[in-house]
Design a protein around this nucleic acid. Sequence first.
DNA 1: AAAGTGATGTGACTTGGTAACGTCACCACC
DNA 2: GGTGGTGACGTTACCAAGTCACATCACTTT
Lengths: 180, 180
Amino acid sequence: MRAALDLFVEQGYEATTVNQIAERAGGLTKTTFFRYFPDKREVLFAAGQQIHARVLADAIAAAPDPATPLQIVATALDALAATFTDERREFSARLRDVIAGNGELRERAALKRAALADATAEALRKRGVTDPSASLAAELGVRAFYCAYDRWAEPTNHQSLAEITRRELDELRGAIATLS
Amino acid sequence: MRAALDLFVEQGYEATTVNQIAERAGGLTKTTFFRYFPDKREVLFAAGQQIHARVLADAIAAAPDPATPLQIVATALDALAATFTDERREFSARLRDVIAGNGELRERAALKRAALADATAEALRKRGVTDPSASLAAELGVRAFYCAYDRWAEPTNHQSLAEITRRELDELRGAIATLS
DNA sequence: AAAGTGATGTGACTTGGTAACGTCACCACC
DNA sequence: GGTGGTGACGTTACCAAGTCACATCACTTT
């Protein structure tokens, strides 16, 4: 994944061939690449996304018992944000820029985001939150996290991802009241 | 698009080649197909999605003036749902099944859904709704519409899409109160 | 020593997708 | 009634993503 990201930054995503990625990742070949990643886009997502879903699901399962859906989601987001240490900031920024610069990658990102929201909603349902509320709370949480992630990756920003996420979720909570 | 959908139903999406689609659509060739659609997936989406965004945006711009964001979204969804006449039901069901049966197509659908929500939020912003609320109201509306669309496509269902959408949006509105 | 196992390479193949160039019909205008 | 433009389409060739069958090589197990 590091080899791929480096090449994408240097030459762009489309201009980089799978053979080049495999070659830079220790003199390997296309075939080996596809043994580890189902397609070219996935090399940028495989590292994180299933793990993120597990972190959220575990935290939701372990959240204290008498809590509103948004409180559960807030503690889960805390756990997820804590896995993004400050050393990963610059890496995350490059990843975000590469994804933003290519349609195929944005498409994959949209799918991953939806999958993360689905997994979160499922974890909430397992805790007894009924379905319109579960999906909604999950969607709000994932939205807050992605907004926070974008701002965290900005080099001018020097707060922790957990802080930004909490603030973002609070802002969404406030916006809910203005809707109807 | 009709030729493509028929073939996808008959043989599956992956087993159908672009040349076959072009051939069935009046003895054409691959080249001509790609003059009309940027890629193979898009043949199932190009017909609707930009039009839906325009319908929503126009309806939002024309909504009565003193209204809450969710009221504006509700009238826009009415306008959108009205474009789905009952004759399109069976067609929509087949389309939905084909999309649900293939990963690439689900991915594209996720992108289209996000794009529709973005366009809706943008239209709300043009009406002066500020940003966390605009994105949120748009997301809620699009979610309600997609849920309604799925239920409307079921052959056992005999209500209009507009009715189902209104009910779905009301349900979401109610779920909001249970979140925090 | 034989047999199995896992990671990798090789070569051939299909198909999505792009580009350059050619053809044909139609339409307008002198 | 030529002349030239325009738009839709085909042909050919090409590249890269992705798949598959088969081979290799190291390392381990028995």
